[in-house]
Write a protein that binds this DNA or RNA. Structure first.
Lengths: 346, 346
DNA sequence: TTGAAAGCGCTACCAG
DNA sequence: CTGGTAGCGCTTTCAA
């Protein structure tokens, strides 16, 4: 930049202004500068600019697992919207590990990103108070923490649980199990909804029917199978299962099928996430749509509104309503005499 | 940092040294500094450090589609390995659009990233020469460009094509089609392999059996269906299809099934990618494994080796050998009399 | 073991 | 419309 200025006999400031499309510069000068920039193949150093403006035009995204289509879709939507305003995404994965998440977030804080967008696997709020101290705005997605007033975008998880469970009740299931997720708000909310739907229909909550899956978003394949095997071992085998998410549901169905059970005749299954391959599965998977794309878009919108306003706006909370998508895995069950045709398990 | 120095009556330099674990500092001083850092909840500004060291500890990743599990898996592996050495990933998606990709890369260049890792959808090398001029090292993944000598990590795409096609021949297919991908090296290589395998078995190459899919990695669902519908409309309907990737194959199978055809009895299908849900599909999908995780890991390794060596090392090219995974969609076809049971298409 | 001077590349502010 | 002065927060080099 200094070189360009020297070459052209103008000041560095003028060059800088041209590069920022600042109006205070003559057309002739502007063109001369632009020409030289092309000639030299000059590249602005945005890092230096950040240092003085205090804006990095970088947004951090922390998710538990990039491979999970739910988060991948959010990342994609986020990236698309932010890019249009010149913001870029630096993405890290916490692997569903609170310690790792803290390290990652510290790194991102040190880099002075403009905003953080976090699907947190933490169960305490201390880290977030630290973020607030640094005056870096953040948006929670998918998961929130009690006692923390912050921006949030996600789905109404209790409604997810109610929707799925009530649907299983509606199609005639009598013993409904739940394979739950990790100890964060979505799993807690969905469990809550599951229980509420049961109680509202006068059904009892059976603890054996609630399978805890500490790390539902990672290695779902194995854990879905394990969970299903525990359910099948019960004397009063469930006839319906609501799974925390679709990968879990898919694994559970695979296991049950391998054991000779028919879905949905013997066990109906509902997942959550409505992933793009749900309708291509061996048994089309009924699921609850969480509007993942919309979550990304809304989070981006909030981010931009924070970044564009001089005074930090009041925390915004966007709670989307989930939607039930019925497929084969929870088709209204056949009449009872269908049971006679059932091959026994094992 | 200045504050800390003032508070403690030491110099800024000393504080800086402590923060970098520089040995030249007394234990007592070090501890005093560290204590004050904790007290003030001080956060180092890495952006400022970058400006003077010329290292951002940031690696750029450009992929056509983050939602595609193939790229998501690469991103994940990359991120995991790089993180251990303190590098972070800034991820952008080109949406399979060469223009957009150029814009994105320009942005990343301006940010002075340490390395770029690119799955390029470009067909010309000019942009890459520009990157080389900027002296920013880069690693191509999945796709390479003719006439460009650079670091590369990917699979042997011709071998992919040969493996898939030869397998279809082996199970008895006589009219083998190929739904190809976009005009980049993987699609070109796989097509090449497809042709070679046919010729080597004394079969003819029928142009109608080769369906061009300009943007195979995006919206595969619709395009897979379209491609299959074109194949089914042919008078001599193919009895085997090798698809550029798994999403395409899945969509193609769904369409064919909906039209009343049986997979693999009427048409056998092989995809590529070996995605995690392949074995849960309505028809278990035979596929070619590309070792996506390994691609990410190798790319990370090359990146680190470049970053750790004073002189830029010679370009490295890692070409992994693909692996055939046989599932239901290409099970050895039943005897010919099975045809009598076939429901007609449409 | 400690620190002073110098500067990374850019932009804000205000004067001409 | 143009440009000087100052400084963003940190590190490097070298002298004390």
């Amino acid at each position: 930049m200094k070189d360009i200025a020297k070459d052209l006999g103008v000041s560095v400031i003028t060059v800088s202004k041209v590069l920022r499309n600042h109006p205070d510069v003559g057309d002739e000068t502007r063109n001369r500068v632009l020409a030289r920039v092309k000639e030299l193949n000059y590249q602005l150093n945005l890092a230096a600019r950040s240092l003085v403006t205090g804006r990095s035009y970088l947004v951090g995204l922390v998710v538990p697992d990039l491979l999970h289509p739910f988060f991948a879709e959010i990342a994609k939507a986020l990236s698309e919207v932010l890019r249009k305003s010149g913001y870029y995404l630096i993405v890290t994965s916490s692997d569903e590990d609170p310690e790792l998440e803290e390290q990652e977030i510290n790194q991102l804080l040190a880099r002075r990103l403009d905003t953080l967008i976090i699907a947190s696997c933490r169960t305490t709020v201390d880290l977030f108070f630290r973020i607030q101290n640094q005056k870096i705005p953040y948006v929670l997605i998918d998961r929130w923490l009690p006692g923390l007033s912050s921006n949030f975008v996600g789905v109404d998880d209790e409604a997810v649980g109610v929707l799925a469970t009530r649907h299983l009740i509606d199609i005639g299931c009598k013993r409904i199990a739940h394979i739950r997720g990790p100890e964060t708000s979505p799993a807690i909310g969905r469990l809550q909804g599951y229980k509420r739907a049961l109680l509202e229909s006068g059904m009892k909550i059976v603890n054996d029917y609630i399978i805890a899956e500490p790390k539902g978003d990672v290695e779902s394949k194995q854990r879905g199978a394990e969970a299903m095997s525990r359910l099948l071992a019960l004397k009063a085998r469930p006839d319906g299962v609501f799974c925390f998410n679709d990968p879990l549901a898919m694994a559970a169905i695979n296991y049950a099928t391998k054991e000779g059970l028919r879905i949905p005749a013997d066990i109906a299954v509902v997942g959550c996430g409505n992933l793009h391959y749900d309708d291509s599965l061996r048994v089309g998977l009924s699921s609850i749509d969480q509007h993942s794309r919309q979550i990304g878009e809304e989070a981006a919108r909030i981010t931009l509104s924070i970044l564009n306003s001089k005074v930090p706006p009041a925390p915004e909370s966007i709670v989307l309503q989930p939607e039930l998508i019925v497929r084969e895995s929870s088709q209204r069950r056949p009449a009872m005499n269908a049971r006679s045709r059932r091959r026994g398990p094992r």
